[in-house]
Write a protein that binds this DNA or RNA. Structure first.
Length: 219
DNA sequence: GCGACAG
DNA sequence: ATCTTGTCGC
């Protein structure tokens, strides 16, 4: 698929923050609710900066693999909470570029709107591709939330600066919730619904599990 | 001021 | 993220 990195790569924290502030207004919080194909994105780190980026496209109805790509590269920025996207974006974009199909939804390993400047990895990937995107975080990062009920499907709002920025969602009975937030071109209801339907069995959505496995063990 | 802080 | 065994439960 077609993707570009239309901004100079930041060389400082200040530059990276400026890019986030500049791109944030481009995020759209409404869009389609149904998707034929869904891609999971993940990165695995080897040494200091060596990494593998994986994208796995699934048929949304059957969860069978349509196409998958792994690329190898280097982290493009030091790890700074809030600027996480700048580490992995070049490798992820390269992997997306090598896809022969264009997925209808991108499921990212990390946060979207639930971010100190409202522009996490899922927003950044969504704005660059123009595709609907959502973020799934495994640990709390920003915001306050109440513990959702123990049953799969239960959720509570994730509140940041007095506004709802995402949801803590129980994807399986009795397991720790995951943190869902909008990335681009979809509502929070749609993001929650998609995460639940893409997680029939485990804690994390199938696209992310597949991408994680591919980045770790290759394909 | 200090600590905590997606992956 | 990664360094790491066994154990409990579906």
């Amino acid at each position: 698929m077609r993707v570009d990195l239309p901004h100079p790569w930041p060389e400082s924290v200040a530059e990276a923050e400026v890019i986030q502030e500049r791109l944030r207004p481009r995020v759209e919080l409404t869009g389609p609710a149904d998707f034929a194909t869904v891609a999971g994105l993940d990165v695995h780190y080897h040494g200091d900066d060596a990494l593998s980026a994986a994208v796995v496209v699934l048929d949304a109805a059957t969860l069978s693999v349509v196409e998958q790509v792994v690329t190898h590269g280097q982290a493009a920025f030091p790890y700074v909470p809030g600027l996480f996207a700048f580490r992995e974006l070049p490798a992820l974009v390269e992997a997306l570029r090598r896809l022969t199909v264009t997925p209808d939804l991108l499921v990212c390993d990390g946060y979207g709107l639930a971010h100190p400047r409202g522009f996490g990895l899922a927003c950044h990937v969504g704005v660059l591709t123009g595709l609907p995107a959502l973020g799934v975080g495994k640990t709390p990062f920003v915001g306050a939330y109440e513990q959702p009920r123990q049953e799969r499907g239960a959720w509570t709002p994730l509140v940041l600066d007095g506004a709802v920025a995402g949801r803590a969602v129980r994807t399986r009975d009795g397991v720790k919730p995951v943190f869902v937030s909008q990335g681009h071109r979809l509502t929070l209801d749609t993001a929650t619904d998609q995460v639940l339907r893409l997680t029939p069995r485990h804690r994390l959505p199938e696209p992310i599990r597949r991408a994680d496995h591919l980045a770790r063990h290759g394909g």
